[in-house]
Structure formats: C-alpha cells, structure tokens
Design a binder for these strands. Structure first.
Lengths: 112, 112
DNA sequence: CAAATATACATAAATTTCTTATGCATAAGT
DNA sequence: ACTTATGCATAAGAAATTTATGTATATTTG
C-alpha cells in the first residue's frame, strides 16, 4: 500500500464514527469501507488499524465479539456506552479542526 | 499552552499557505496569526513551529531574512520558487483530505 | 520600580501515531 | 499451482508533535 495521507490523529475518530453509523464492524471491513467511501483516497493500513482498535478497546470505548465465518476469524467491534459519548466529543473536535483549516485555506481574511 | 489538536502533518502546509498569502512572516507572527484567524482554536506551539520552519528551509521551500526591530531579532521567511510550487501540491493534498473527511463525517452513504 | 506578561528566537527529551515489513492462516480465482 | 483476497497480528523505524527548558529584550501593571 502506498500513499494515503491520513494526518495523524484522525484515525481513531474515523473508526468511532464508522462504528457509530454501522453498529458493528470488523477490522478488514473498516479498511474496505474507508477505501470505498473515499474512492481510494484514504487507505487504512493494517499496521495502523489493529493497534488503534486495540487501544480503543483498552480505553473502554469498544467492545469485541469474535465470530467465525467461512472458517475464518472475525473480530466485530462496537461502541460501548462510554464509546458513544467519546465519539461525540471527538467528532466535535475533528469538525472544529476542519472548520479551522477551511478558515486558513479559504482566506476571506485577505480581503480585510 | 494547552490543547490545540493540530493533526500531525498539517502544520507545514499551514505555514506555506500563510506565507503564500502574506508574502513574508516571522515565526512569532505566524503563531499569532493562526491563533487570531482560528479564534484560538489552533495554537501553534513554538516547539513545533521552529523545527518546522527550519525543515522547510532545509528543503529549499523557504528563504530567510534576518531583521532587527526594537532591538529584537526577527527572522522573516518567504516562499522560494520551489516553495510556491510545493505549496500548490500540499494544499491540493490537504483539501483532498478534508473532502475525504467530510465524506466520512457526513454519511449520506447511510441512505444508500 | 519590581514583577509579570509579551515578544522572539531555540533545542532536547519524551510521546504519539503512523509506515513498512513481516508473519500466520484460510478461501477463492486463474 | 500460483496469485489475490480475506482476516488477524506485531515489531522496528520514521515522523511530527508536546512538554519542558533556556536565553534575551520590551512593555505593561500594581
């Protein structure tokens, strides 16, 4: 996998948001969903994803449930109650960041 | 200084964009400008800013010019020709990232 | 006028987060 | 048979930042 440009810090928020929308997902599914939704612009690498999932779980924001499909293992993650609250916070933070970036990138202030 | 949430990777692009708009700026001025434009949402710390400026200079994207104002030192930075080209690229990348994030955060896809 | 704040640069240690490189295993396509 | 897709995982290294300092001058404030 080559370039993706994720801007460090946004990954866990993306995960939380997807789980909030989809209810439950497993790791591989998340990588494919992000690739599909962003038309290949964002590629979540496994080396980033799995540690991130484990961390979110350790923080008590995710619950895991193991399933076996076609003799292959899947680990389904879903938000805990605490995870849902934290999702709200992180989304607000990320959206605030995006608004700030747009302010900087669309310099209406140049006119002032 | 407390929270700012810069999302690693965006700092150098912010610097390049500001210099593209303002022509030339010195470090401290950049921190204040970002704080002002984002109404305090984004705070560039000095520990991040100065190494970033030095790196951009080392990469040949910035030129420096030292000035003394009120017996205090200022290092004015401005884009080199190469810096102007690179600014275009990095802005495009960052805007692409923002579009991707908005796709993920505003799930019209939930309706599909 | 002494102390605090603002201006202005800088660097180093530690932390966080990610990339790259592996590794294992099963299923499906060619 | 071989490659690609599915599915998990970890470790080493790189990159970008935070936090903590350090130095120095100017201005504001009690």
């Amino acid at each position: 996998m080559a370039n993706s440009k994720l801007y460090k810090g946004s990954l866990s928020t993306i995960i939380l948001k997807l789980l909030d929308e989809e209810g439950k997902m497993y790791g591989y599914e998340i990588t494919q969903k992000v690739k599909q939704l962003t038309k290949g612009e964002l590629k979540i690498t496994e080396g980033a994803l799995y540690p991130a999932l484990h961390k979110l779980e350790a923080e008590g924001l995710l619950d895991v449930e193991v399933a076996k499909v076609d003799n292959r293992l899947r680990k389904y993650y879903k938000l805990t109650e605490q995870g849902e609250k934290e999702t709200v916070n992180r989304l607000a933070e990320l959206e605030e960041f995006i608004r700030s970036m747009e302010t900087l990138l669309n310099p209406k202030w140049k006119l002032l």
